[in-house]
C-alpha cells in the first residue's frame, strides 16, 4: 500500500542525506521523494511516497520525527489531498507518426515543449496515475528519455501541515 507523507525540514546541508539514509538503514521502500523550499526559505517541504503496510507507515513517521532537522511529519489521507507529478518525455518518431503522438498529447492535455525532425518532447503535469497512462500510451512508440519529479501533494481546504 502506498502512503503519502509530508515532511517539513530545516533547509540546510545534509538533511536530504539524513532522511534518505534513514530509509535505507531501516529498510523502508521509497517510491518517490520530492523536495523544494517553502515560502519560508529556511524550511523545505518533502513529499515522500512509501510502499508498505500500516506498521511501516507508522515507523517511518516516528523515525522521521526523531530526526533533529525534521520539524513536522504528517501522513496524508489519500482522499483529502491533491497530488501532482511533472513529467518530461522525449519520443523518437517518424514524420508519419507525428500526427498520432500529437493526438495523444492533445487528448491527455500535454504541452509539446520541443520538436525536431526525429523527436518530440512532451511535458505533462497530472496525478501520477495519469502520468503512468500517458507513458503507457507512448510506449507504443520509441521513448528516448523520461524524467519524473515524483509526487507532490497538498491537503484540500484550510488544512495545513
Amino acid at each position: 500500500m502506498k502512503h503519502t507523507i509530508a515532511v517539513l525540514v530545516e533547509n540546510r546541508a545534509g538533511v536530504l542525506s539524513r532522511i534518505s539514509g534513514l530509509f535505507a538503514r531501516r529498510g523502508f521502500n521509497i517510491d518517490s521523494l520530492a523536495v523544494g523550499p517553502t515560502d519560508d526559505p529556511k524550511i523545505s517541504r518533502m513529499t515522500i511516497i512509501v510502499d508498505g503496510d500500516d506498521y511501516t507507515a507508522e515507523q517511518v513517521t516516528k523515525q522521521l520525527n526523531k530526526l533533529i532537522d525534521v520539524l513536522k511529519v504528517r501522513k496524508l489521507t489519500f482522499q483529502d489531498i491533491i497530488r501532482r507529478e511533472l513529467l518530461l518525455v522525449k519520443v523518437k518518431l517518424s514524420e508519419s507518426q507525428r500526427g498520432e503522438i500529437v493526438d495523444i498529447a492533445k487528448i491527455m492535455g500535454c504541452e509539446m515543449v520541443d520538436i525536431s525532425h526525429t523527436t518530440l518532447m512532451l511535458e505533462h503535469s497530472d496525478r501520477p496515475e495519469k502520468i503512468d497512462l500517458l507513458i503507457d500510451l507512448l510506449s507504443k512508440y520509441k521513448i528516448l528519455e523520461i524524467t519524473r519529479t515524483g509526487t507532490i501533494a497538498l491537503q484540500r481546504g484550510a488544512d495545513s501541515v
Binding site: Y55, E58, Q59, K62, Q63, N65, K66
Partner: peptide
C-alpha cells in the same frame, strides 16, 4: 521517552 520505540 522515544515515541519510535513504542510499537516498534
Amino acid at each position: 521517552i522515544d515515541p519510535a520505540e513504542i510499537g516498534k
